[in-house]
Structures are given as C-alpha cells and as structure tokens.
Amino acid sequence: MATLATSPLNETKLNAFMNQAVMDMGAAMHATLVLVGDKLGLYKAMAGAGPLTPEQLAAKTGTRERYVREWLNANAASGYLTYDAATKTYTLPPEQAFALAKDDSPAFLPGAFQIISAMMRDAPTIIDAFRTGRGVGWHEHDPELFQGTERFFRPNYAANLISQWIPALTGIEDKLKSGIRVADVGCGHGSSTILMAKAYPNSTFFGFDYHPASIEWAQKAAKEAGVGDRITFHTATAKTYPGKDYDLVTFFDCLHDMGDPVGASAHVLSSLAPGGSWMIVEPFAGDNVEDNLNPVGRVFYSASTMLCTPASCSQEVGLALGAQAGEARLREVVTEGGFGTFRRAAQTPFNLVFEARA
C-alpha cells in the first residue's frame, strides 16, 4: 500500500487542492451567515434599497451595527454583495436579491442553507449510523430540516409543476381541470399539494406523509392558502395510504427515501384508477457514478449521505436507492412493482420527472 513516505507529492496538484479546500471552508462558514441574514431579514432589507452603510442596515433591521458590519464584509468577500470603498457602502445586486430575498423566486436559496444547518447539527447521529449501520428516520433530524426542505423545493415546484410537468403527463391536465382524485404521497409540508389544489379547483386532493408534524404543518398551510376544503391530509406511509381510484398519484423527491420503493410502487398501482398515472419527481442523476461527478451531483450525493440513505435504512427492506439512483434503477423499481410503462416525461437541471402507467 502506498504511503506518504513512498508516494511523491505533486506540489502543483497539492496547491490546487488546498485552494479548493480553502474555497470550501469559506463556503461552509458562509452558509451559516446566509442563514443569519435570512432569519434577521438582512437580505430583504437590502433588496432594492441601493447602497447602504452598516449603520443604515442595522437601523432598518433592528440589529447592532458592529455585527452587521462584519456580516456585510463576509458577504462581500463571498460575492453575495458588492462593496464601494469610496463610500464604504454595500449593495445587494438584483440577481442576488432574486435568489436571497424573494421567497417565491424559482432561484430562492435560503431554504437550502437551512438544510445545510440541520445536516451539520445531525453529524453526530450520522457518524453513529456509519459505525452501527442503523438507519436515521426523517423524524429524527433537526426540525430546521423540515422547513428548509419545504422552502428549498417549493420555488422549483412553483416554477415547473403546473406549467411543464403536469402538461407532460398523458391526458392528466385536462382531467385535472374537469375534476379528479389526486393522491400526493410523501407530501411533507404540503407545498406540492397546495400548488395543485390552487391550479385545479375542480379536483380533490389527498396528501399523505408518515411524519405527523409535517402533516400538521400542511393542514395549516392549506387553510392559510384558501384550499383547505379541497385537500385532506393524513398521516400514512407510501405502502399504506388509503383510498382507491386515484387518477393521479404523485411522489415528489421522496421515492428514493423509502425503505421499500418496490412495495410502494405496487401499492400505487393498486390505488390507481384505470388509465391513471403515477408522476415521480426525482433528483437529476445519470445512471453511472461518473455521470454525476459534477456540482449538482456533489450536492445530491452529500444530501443523500446525510438524509436519504439513512432514511431508507431506517425502514423495512432498506433498499437505500440514494438520491442519485438514476433513471435505469428507478425503472427497475417501478416495473418490479407491476407497472408496464415507465417514461421520462420532463426534466430540469435539478429534477427528472417520470410517468408510470399500468
């Protein structure tokens, strides 16, 4: 086995790696500051406000100037803000404001940093899982994860679900407009369910998730959105959710988290009405590891290590598909569950959207 004593070092490669590591250190540390800026409303206060001094931003947000000044400098060093040395002012460019201060933007980012924060807090639990092999259920994670996941995924769903993904399914859009029964499985805080209920008032929606706290949140969110009368939320798993004759069943970014996705597939098939469709939204991934060795794959493999794989291992079967399972592996799972048709219906840089039919 090669050791440091016998393996010559390429100084150029070492320096390149060290530069990369320093970039990663800064990114990891700055992730906490994004969360601080989000929770204190600092980005929102800067959006559209033009150049601001630390004193002005502190006054606008009810915070202390010295802390704000250091936060501003870190953001400027990270390229999140611009700094004018002549006036000693800081500006949030419109592009950054679109991603950091606008909750309904399709590029909204703070939810992702909430997820990162939760992953950091959960590191001791995951380290133990590495040693013991035990799973870590979704419900066992830091609560920041649940809200962060909803805030991170909702903008992408809002941008694509109604305009692109549903129209790509076989005849489903017209059925939704006329009125059908829809089951949204693994609904979490209910963002996807609520978006569909708003867009298709003639249809009836049922949201299912095994996590009681998420179901409680979803019920409140649906009521606040004015669609509580068209959505029924229940605590149930993907293999036990009740009801039959659904014309559409949806799984948003959750099939790979399940311990027994084949069993879930079989249950979906048994719950569909004749001619119904199962829409499966999954993280974008190629079929081979080498296809996913890129920035998006880096994010998804990291999340999968901390969240998705442990979740599956905590359940029966524990197939542990992982967030980068890829289309071929997902096809195997779906067809093993009894479906005869499986096709890629749509895609974005972050998602693959599949349709399965009997």
Rank of each mutant, 00 (worst) to 15 (best):
Pro310His: 06
Ala197Asp: 07
Arg69Ile: 00
Leu92Phe: 07
Leu14Ser: 09
Pro94Glu: 13
Thr204Ala: 13
Arg357Asp: 04
Val227Cys: 09
Met18Leu: 14
Arg131Phe: 09
Ala2Pro: 15
Ala183Ile: 07
Ala99Tyr: 00
Gln147Met: 10
Glu290Met: 14
Tyr80Gln: 08
Cys308Pro: 04
Asp245Gln: 12
Ala2Arg: 14
Arg121Pro: 00
Trp165Arg: 02
Gln56Lys: 13
Thr32Cys: 07
Phe146Tyr: 14
Ser265Cys: 05
Gly188Leu: 02
Gly226Val: 07
Thr348Trp: 02
Met46Cys: 09
Ser312Val: 06
Asp291Trp: 11
Ala311Leu: 06
Glu150Lys: 12
His211Gln: 11
Ala47Ser: 15
Ala21Ser: 12
Ala27Met: 14
Gly276Glu: 03
Asn202Lys: 12
Ala118Gly: 11
Asn292His: 03
His256Asp: 07
Met29Asp: 06
Asn73His: 01
Pro167Glu: 09
Phe205His: 08
Gly337Thr: 01
Leu352Val: 05
Gly137Val: 00
Ala74Lys: 00
Leu4Arg: 08
Phe233Arg: 05
Ala266Glu: 09
Ser271Gly: 13
Ala45Leu: 07
Lys88Gly: 03
Met119Phe: 09
Ile180Trp: 04
Phe342Arg: 02
Ala101Tyr: 06
Pro94Ala: 13
Ala158Tyr: 00
Gln324Ile: 11
Ala222Tyr: 01
Phe98Ala: 15
Ala97Gly: 14
Ala21Phe: 11
